[in-house]
Each structure stands twice: as structure tokens, then as C-alpha cells.
């Protein structure tokens, strides 16, 4: 089993790119199963099912979506094995930009929208900096110069990435991504680890506190001036 984990900002074109990639994998007689992770709602499963791909949806609801994805990886792999798939493709929601859902031996794919501005690669954190492949979408909406600057900015945070310029509408670049997926290594769960540690996240908000005043907050807390402290037992 080979595993591809796709992360990216909402609306960047993850699903559109993946649909083209999957079609191309199917043309080459590979089989794939897709898991789409989201927080509250998604109907992207219809797009995958429409092209005949076994699709599972996971809604994380009150749990952090990346933690939810990682926690369920074992079940997802089992499910894809039952489908006799060559590839398990997990599309994540990825929201706070502090986590990266990639494991050491998966193929980590980050999808990022070129119209989001040339400073975006500096802002989005580990899901870009620890990716193997960075797929840049919507490049046709901006000038060539801006596209080139965007690319340079990606290399600033992830010098080893392979950048693919793709278009979710026309399918440009998706063949190249499919080739990389075919080349990706086998994954065994026993020795698998995350590439990047998650943030320190146990706090009063996690357990349901809604009051805003400072005095009610416990856990690892960071002030706006950068001072970090632990409040509590």
C-alpha cells in the first residue's frame, strides 16, 4: 500500500486536481481509494464517486481535523486494503496552519493557491515546509512575474520541494503529479511517524470554556508580547 496525504487551504483546488490525477491513474490501470477529511460538511465525495473511486468521508466535528485524520489512519489503510487499492489518498481539511498531517513515508502533497498572494508561502507553516510536492493552482489568474515570485517564496520555506504548476479546470500538471504518486514508497504503519510535531494544545477552550476573561484560562498560554506560561495545577 502506498499512501498520499494531500493538504491545502480551503478552496485551493485539492479536489479538482485530485479528480484529474485519479483519472490518469485509472488510465494506467492503477486502483485508488480516497478518504476525504473535513470538519463540518463536504460533498466532495460525489465528485470522486462519479469517476468510480471508492470514497470514504470523515467529519472531525469537535475534534481537531488533523488529529482526527492521524488517529484514524490505521482504519483508513485497512479499508483501502480491503478495496485492493494500490493507493490510499487522504485529502485533509488542514485549517490552523500549525499542523502538518504528513507521515514520514507517505507522499506529502501540499496544494496552494497562487492568487493568495506572494507572502502566503511564508505564512502557512509546516504543511508547506514539510511537503514532498507543492502543487500551485490558479497560476493562470496572475502575471508570469507574480507566478515566478510565488515559486521563489515556496523554495524559501521548502528548498527541497518539487513544485508542480497545476490547473484544476484543464488538468494541466496533473499527469506530473500522478507520476510522482506512482513513484512513492510503500508504507508500513509499525514504524510510521509524523514529520512534524503538533502544537501544545491542551487548554481550557479544548474542554469547553467559553468565557473570554483572562482569569478563566488555564494550560499553556502565550501572551501577545510573546511571553509564554503554564497556568494550572
Amino acid at each position: 500500500m502506498r499512501m498520499v496525504i494531500v493538504a491545502g487551504t480551503p478552496g485551493s483546488g485539492k479536489t479538482a486536481v485530485l479528480v484529474h490525477v485519479l483519472k490518469s491513474l485509472m488510465r494506467d490501470n492503477f486502483t485508488a481509494s480516497v478518504v476525504k477529511i473535513d470538519c463540518l460538511y463536504t460533498d466532495d465525495d460525489k465528485k470522486f464517486k462519479k469517476i468510480g473511486i471508492p470514497t470514504l468521508i470523515g467529519l472531525s466535528m469537535d475534534m481537531c481535523p488533523d488529529h482526527y485524520a492521524i488517529y484514524n489512519i490505521e482504519d483508513m489503510i485497512d479499508w483501502a486494503r480491503q478495496n485492493n487499492s494500490d493507493f490510499l489518498i487522504i485529502e485533509t481539511a488542514g485549517l490552523c496552519h500549525r499542523c502538518a498531517p504528513y507521515t514520514k513515508n507517505c507522499l506529502g502533497v501540499c496544494v496552494i493557491d497562487a492568487t493568495s498572494g506572494p507572502n502566503t508561502p511564508l505564512k502557512v507553516g509546516p504543511f508547506l515546509s514539510t511537503a514532498d510536492i507543492v502543487v500551485v493552482t490558479k497560476g493562470d489568474m496572475i502575471s508570469q512575474a507574480e507566478r515566478e515570485i510565488f515559486r521563489e517564496r515556496i523554495f524559501e520555506v521548502n528548498p527541497n520541494a518539487k513544485i508542480i504548476e497545476a490547473n484544476g479546470l484543464s488538468g494541466q500538471g496533473c499527469l506530473e503529479l500522478a507520476d510522482e504518486i506512482v513513484k512513492s514508497p510503500e508504507v508500513s504503519l509499525e514504524s510510521e511517524k509524523l514529520r512534524h510535531s503538533a502544537p501544545l494544545a491542551v487548554c481550557t477552550l479544548c474542554v469547553g470554556e467559553t468565557r473570554v476573561n483572562k482569569k478563566y484560562h488555564r494550560g499553556i498560554l502565550r501572551r501577545i508580547d510573546g511571553f509564554q506560561t503554564y497556568q494550572g495545577e
Binding site: 492568487t115 507572502n119 496572475i142 507574480e146 515566478e148 515570485i149
Partner: peptide, 22 residues
């Protein structure tokens, strides 16, 4: 290209310097 507007949030000088570097 046909796209007439810049989306990059920077000055003309910064933009051209970056592009020259690329």
C-alpha cells in the same frame, strides 16, 4: 498575460527586486 491587475501586496520596488532575483 491578459490579467491586468497585480495581486501582490508590496511596493513596485520590492516586487521588481524580487522578480529580478527570481
Amino acid at each position: 498575460s491578459q490579467n491586468m491587475n497585480f495581486l501582490a501586496d508590496m511596493t513596485v520596488g520590492e516586487f521588481l527586486t524580487l522578480h529580478a532575483k527570481c
